[in-house]
Design a protein around this nucleic acid. Structure first.
Lengths: 208, 208, 208, 208
DNA sequence: GATGAATGAGTATTCATTCAT
DNA sequence: GATGAATGAATACTCATTCAT
């Protein structure tokens, strides 16, 4: 199982020098935090610049507009998440022969990852409904995550799962729904219990 | 199984005359459409007014501000959806003794309902992350939907489901995730196939 | 000394019936209170209507616009104040032969009158700077008050005051300045002491 | 007699660059003129911007809101006026040993100063009735002017004036009243004659 | 005549983006 | 290249006034 994630083309004012790259990074970090915290619309260019310790001019020298910043973050985030997801899945067979246990491990791992960026995840999911470019980028990486699941199903069940694609999508999206709820109510729920239940559902789905 | 949904109080400028009530309805309809289509932030007061065929002044005579319009829509929508959801569930036992078939019927029914207002659903889910009042209203009705599921589980399994609450939440939220995906990709997926798969997952979860 | 105050012409929608007159009175009373309390600009037509227990339509049936309401109040108030002022002055000679004591009595009387409508006085003085019509009405009655003072000076000093007009104006306007200050700081000053001082000043001015 | 006027702190967006300071000055000058001419409420942000030859954005980059502009002007104006007033008073003993002549000189000097900003004076006096912050700033400097008068009285009468505070207030406020009237009717009155009369009143008040 | 719903021009303020320094 | 001052279109909301019922 080798990595086959592909960089989806997206044109930005590409920086060359080191210092410039560093500045670019600071802008993206600040923007990511703000988009997650207060959303795209309420995040102003000057807020980003301030938080990044950059002048507005500096910001606009690096990115053509606010949308471009968002899309850049989205791309990087989706790619990183996808890679992480697939690494998790790809490593599973080597470490755990018991599917039930494997699912449990996977679910817990993914939840804690999701939890780290719960707000950003949500902002992104919102954004893709309003912006075609965002949707394309997002879908691209989601499909690659789906592929990871499919590959795992085929590997584990030796190609005997009928319609692994639909199975992958259902699992993947049910996960989103449950995790999203858990994140939003993290202060008032028993995370462990819900994870067990969710994990049980997936196990029954795949094993029976 | 009787209905126990309660109207949660929310104060708006209450219209008295017939004409006024009609105008109010037009405003809410226009706003609902716009919120769903382009989101809360991008929906301007004058857009709503224009779409509703009302002047801005007329709009503000009825609602104190944009937020109030959104919360009113949210309340009415959440209440309506909850009632519909619970009626579906409550009627199930009378019509269908086979749990597997019942789940199938239910899932399909709910999906087509969700589909009708997919975008609004999403905008609402986004909004509740940013606004405490919205979250309270939404959570109130979600919990009532959960209660409906719990009641059904207890009825069908004669109180033998251990932890029906968590079970209900997992089912409910997985449903949200899958339906949301299906809605967003309705043009490129095989809805029937995904519904079957999802329904299968729920059935296995509950029956094994 | 007979009364010679003249009604300055001002055209309003003149009500005829009793009920209508009563309504008109209620509107003016409400408006007067509001103009005094929050000023002309912040007093809205609907606030007046509400406070008067009248519909906006009813208000506009009686007055052409907000300005007209203000000018009507101004006219009535200035007239009433002028009449009161002149009655005070005209009665003085019959009651008090000692000028010093007469001034003292007068000053105190006027202050307590001014205090009753301190805010309205101020709003009016402001308004006449911005509106020619208002200035004309106000000046008309102020001049009549001046005349009252002049008449008194001539009566008391048997026409021997040189330039009684200027004297009257100086007294009149110094009074305005001092009373206005006293009203605005009524909570933190010793009214009695200031009145004595002011009265002393006028006495010295006239008697030496 | 040394100067002890203290700058009362008031926080605005403080400009750093030269260009910015110039712009700030232009805005304040334009606003001052407009507030004086048409009052606070009728002075719109865009009017100020236009008159100052600045964009609205530029205006709001320098001041948080219209009120802040007004308070800034008020502070600067009250301070400047106070300083001017006290310099006049403090210099008097060195130049004029005859109190009667000194008062005459002072009154005329103050009148011509007041005349320069008669309208602004009035707008300010109105505003302090509606706004606590404005009242505080204004009162602060008025009290310092009062102190100047008191100091002078004590100096000239070798501490023998009983209750110099009340005396100062009465003089100060009578002055306001008379000057305000004179300013408003400057076209139809004999300024010189009124000033003589007013000055005579003060002289008699203090010397007898 | 009375009512209050409807109108829409007007106001304060924000923010993405540009461009002189 | 970097800076942040300047721009002005856009937006939420108000209120004097009109007019259908």
């Amino acid at each position: 199982m080798k990595e086959d994630c592909i960089k989806s083309g997206y044109s930005t004012k590409e920086p060359v020098q080191k210092r410039s790259k560093e500045t670019r990074r600071k802008i993206l970090a600040a923007a990511k935090e703000l988009f997650a915290e207060i959303g795209f619309e309420r995040t102003t260019a000057s807020l980003i610049a301030k938080q990044a310790g950059v002048s507005i001019g500096g910001l606009y020298a690096r990115f053509n507009n606010k949308l471009e910043i968002f899309l850049t973050i989205l791309k990087e985030y989706a790619e990183k998440t996808c890679i992480f997801f697939r690494e998790n899945i790809d490593w599973l067979p080597e470490q755990e022969k018991d599917l039930a246990k494997a699912i449990d491990t996977l679910v817990r791992g993914l939840y804690y990852t999701h939890r780290l960026e719960g707000k950003l995840n949500f902002e992104i999911e919102k954004f893709i409904m309003m912006n075609e470019d965002a949707k394309k980028i997002y879908d691209h990486w989601q499909r690659r995550e789906d592929e990871g699941i499919i590959r795992y199903l085929n590997y584990f069940f030796q190609e005997k799962v009928e319609d692994p694609e639909s199975t992958a999508i259902v699992i993947h999206r049910a996960t989103h729904g449950v995790f999203s709820y858990m994140y939003q109510n993290k202060d008032s729920i028993d995370e462990e219990k819900l994870l067990s239940h969710f994990s049980a559902m997936i196990k029954k789905y795949l094993l029976f």
